[in-house]
Design a protein around this nucleic acid. Sequence first.
DNA 1: ATTTAAGCGAGACGGTACGTCCAGTCTTCAT
DNA 2: ATGAAGACTGGACGTACCGTCTCGCTTAAAT
Lengths: 202, 202, 202, 202
Amino acid sequence: MRTEERALPTAPRRSRQSSAEARDKALAATAELLAEGGFQAVTMEAVAARSGVAKTTLYRWWPNRAAVALACVSARMAPIGDGGPAGSYRERFQRQLKATIRLLNSAEGQAITALIGAKQTDPLLAEAYSEQIARPRRAQTRMLLQQAIRAGEVAAGTDPDLFLDAIYGPLYYRKVVSGELVTDAFIDRIVDAAFIAFSARA
Amino acid sequence: MRTEERALPTAPRRSRQSSAEARDKALAATAELLAEGGFQAVTMEAVAARSGVAKTTLYRWWPNRAAVALACVSARMAPIGDGGPAGSYRERFQRQLKATIRLLNSAEGQAITALIGAKQTDPLLAEAYSEQIARPRRAQTRMLLQQAIRAGEVAAGTDPDLFLDAIYGPLYYRKVVSGELVTDAFIDRIVDAAFIAFSARA
Amino acid sequence: MRTEERALPTAPRRSRQSSAEARDKALAATAELLAEGGFQAVTMEAVAARSGVAKTTLYRWWPNRAAVALACVSARMAPIGDGGPAGSYRERFQRQLKATIRLLNSAEGQAITALIGAKQTDPLLAEAYSEQIARPRRAQTRMLLQQAIRAGEVAAGTDPDLFLDAIYGPLYYRKVVSGELVTDAFIDRIVDAAFIAFSARA
Amino acid sequence: MRTEERALPTAPRRSRQSSAEARDKALAATAELLAEGGFQAVTMEAVAARSGVAKTTLYRWWPNRAAVALACVSARMAPIGDGGPAGSYRERFQRQLKATIRLLNSAEGQAITALIGAKQTDPLLAEAYSEQIARPRRAQTRMLLQQAIRAGEVAAGTDPDLFLDAIYGPLYYRKVVSGELVTDAFIDRIVDAAFIAFSARA
DNA sequence: ATTTAAGCGAGACGGTACGTCCAGTCTTCAT
DNA sequence: ATGAAGACTGGACGTACCGTCTCGCTTAAAT
């Protein structure tokens, strides 16, 4: 079960009907290319050829291939769940992180890590990633944390970003930096550790 | 992709003087290019032009530009310190992480994060990165952790990789994924949390 | 970088104007562009942007950029003079050719030679050029020649086109084909030669 | 712009073999394209596609499509004849001009007039045209004229360029500027006129 | 002392993709 | 219902690097 679906900050404000059509065709083709060959396969030429949208039009709307891929991922990425209503907040976080790693391991997730990779050398992409991917997801997880704090499972004065980085950090670190497999057991123990360190009684 | 240089095919290795010379010139040029324009500037053409080493020769030793950059960084990166002898192991870890983030924030660090970015879509580079950068550093930090365990500051049964990912994960997460600034206070608190969660008495 | 679509410019100001008004504005803009950057600068996009006339409207009136430039030149080109009343017809022709070469050397003349260039690969433009530029001018010079014939300076049976091509040909040849400078002395001698060859006594 | 291939730097003792091969293939494809669709059809993309030579390589040797077409025409254009040995010099010039107009009316000639057109707005092409097409042909016709002068058919003091422009000018004028048909009779009469105007007795 | 071939510089080559410009067409919307 | 605004497809442009491929040259090792 999902919480209420928040609209992503993508507000397609278009004044031309056909522009939305071209945009949709382009993003659909991008999604196909992502699924087939990953981020590498998302070249402007390929998107243009696949979608029937002229390259000129692609460049009218996005400055480069990373922006296209980002728009595609951002538009299609399922919103983060709240881990369901059942169980403790510790368990809900564990479910949330497991959902996250499943997403990152999917074909769509390959696009996300590729975008994280690409933004290391592209400040504009980094900014766009923050706005469209990182911040919305962080906002959602922060809400769950605040509930956990109100429920007394996490200490009252806990810095939300510190806590969330403490649990999401190891996950992304393994996925993006060290390349080690992220197991459910790893997630359980990382979340356990955070709930110990930031427990109300600590 | 191979880590350092490729093995020469023939056993009777004629140690030609200039091969090492060409390799050194190439890496020196790479270091300059990294400093000047980051990883983006390290193209095979630029390295060849800058170093006076023929492109052919570069490809004889490295399969692509990422491998060259990796060899350069790997050769020049200072080994991780052990945090110095003074103070508790908690403090030594904090010093070690602060040294790490200073490295990542340097010009050389831009190359490292760029390589982490590039390896998201290049499995051979990912493997080479693991071999040359990640594993050696992890081995060093694991030794420090084992000392901390022997000293009783960390619980005896602690999984070293779990503990180390718990402290390095948030650091790299901020640097590579979220892009937020990594402050000394953040490091202190992350390490504090890990020492609480994995303390001997837990 | 923009994530979704780039911002559309605001405040679309639309006001209707008469067709003649649009045509005049377009030709005025064309004249400016011709003066600034020659025929190369006369693109439909540039004329539209400069004049405030929509590209659609330009295409309603002219089939392509060459036609626009031609219309501009044709509308603004001073009619050929008759060399003034004074002197012999030989001298009047010499004055007329000198005026022609001065025109061709002017900024407007650059447009004319560019149009002559463009019509080599554009039959419609070639036809339009003939109608609007070549024929009217030839008609004027033919009248002068007929006067010269009546005055006895040129032989009675002279084919007008042959005579006129004999004097205008070398001028345009130098200007358009060989690129050599056309001096007043060259014109004098070419006209002299024609008057010798086609003199009444020949 | 360079005429044929760009000057190799120093020490061109490198294998010119492969470069000549690519050059030949490119020019052969260009000739086909010229024959099929005229100068318009000679695009770098088309030459590359047709010849199997990479676009990069085309740009290595020629700066733009006009230069390619020029190199093609220049390499394949038959040298001007001397009009054959028989008859008077007047007749030899008439034969020479008739051969010239036949050339200009051929498929190859379309390329020449198109190049003359293109050079109106491309100074580098204009220079290359002069060097490779105009000057060599003028040198040949000037030799014939000098023989005519020595033979007493043309006055001794005649300026060669003036005489030659007087006969070639009307030909090119009709072909390039006015678009009128150039008949054999027209050529005969133009040459007659020049021989009258510049006759030894004049 | 003479081969001999590995390693080298130089750089041309076929390619892929880039990002841009402009052409000419088509749709929408305001007046 | 006209015409300005401007989005669209499409073709070609000229550039940057890629990774591959001869070439000859140099020189150390093995004769």
